[in-house]
Amino acid sequence: MTDLSHRFAPSPRPEFERKVTAPAELGDVAKPLSMVERIVNISAVRRGVILVFIALFWEVYARWLNNPLSFPTFLDTLEALRDGIASGIIPQRLMITLQTLVAGYFIGLVIAAILTSVAVTTRIGTDLLATLTAMFNPLPAIALLPLALLWFGLGRPSLIFVIIHSVLWAVALNMHSGFLAVSDTLRMAGRTFGLRGLRLVIGILIPAAFPAILSGLKIGWAFAWRTLIAAELVFGVSSGQGGLGWYIFENRNTLDTAAVFAGLLTVMTVGLLIEAVIFRFIEARTVRRWGMQRG
């Protein structure tokens, strides 16, 4: 053994042993936060404040600009929005848009799920998915619209086709990378339970990859929404029934700028609502509760 009483060692300090105070005598160990702190902790409140400031800035700037033809005020826009809703035009257009969207979105999801399942179970499937996503993911959906019109004619099928294209690749890519990221331990645990094949995918892989799948769903949703509004703007009316994009286009033609703004506001609001209400709800019920994502 080496001698530890080295010349660099400090001189020893006195030893002691003492009784500690019992935790009960220390009073409140966990104190509740103050009311203000708790309100500021709600993200909806913080974001709401930002929205109010944006609206205020808009109103002031538009009044100062005083050119309702190119930039209507916030209040004018709200009025146009109220009129549009009261007359039933905006809700009707919105319904048409949403119906098309939901149809395209879900068909896209189903195809993505099938493609990804094939990709995780076979090697050739992985190559197929990798090649297809590499080819089609960079292709803007709108670029396919002329082709879609040629194949499916002027109507809803064309719109659904481009939506599927915009959803499919983003979702499949996310799902697949989510499956690949599931740990070996979890896979092996599932297999010792006696799960294999499709049951392993449903019982272990899908829930374990859910954070990635959910972010795929969100990205897919945003892509689909943007693509659809753009597609409606480009060729608008489908068999006499236009959606929100057509509403915007129509009002621009009549130089009713406030109504154009109202249409844009509706597009944003719906996008925001779906993100903030539906996806947030799913998130809170799943990945946050499971501790797979902080927030």
Binding site: S183, T185, M188, R191, T192, A208, F210, W290, G291
Partner: peptide, 20 residues
């Protein structure tokens, strides 16, 4: 010939539990 529930395994890693 393959894994099965008659031979349950406890792993070293903490992520063997299903987080959901």
């Amino acid at each position: 010939t393959g894994p099965g529930p008659d031979r349950m395994m406890v792993f070293q890693e903490f992520d063997q539990l299903l987080p959901w």
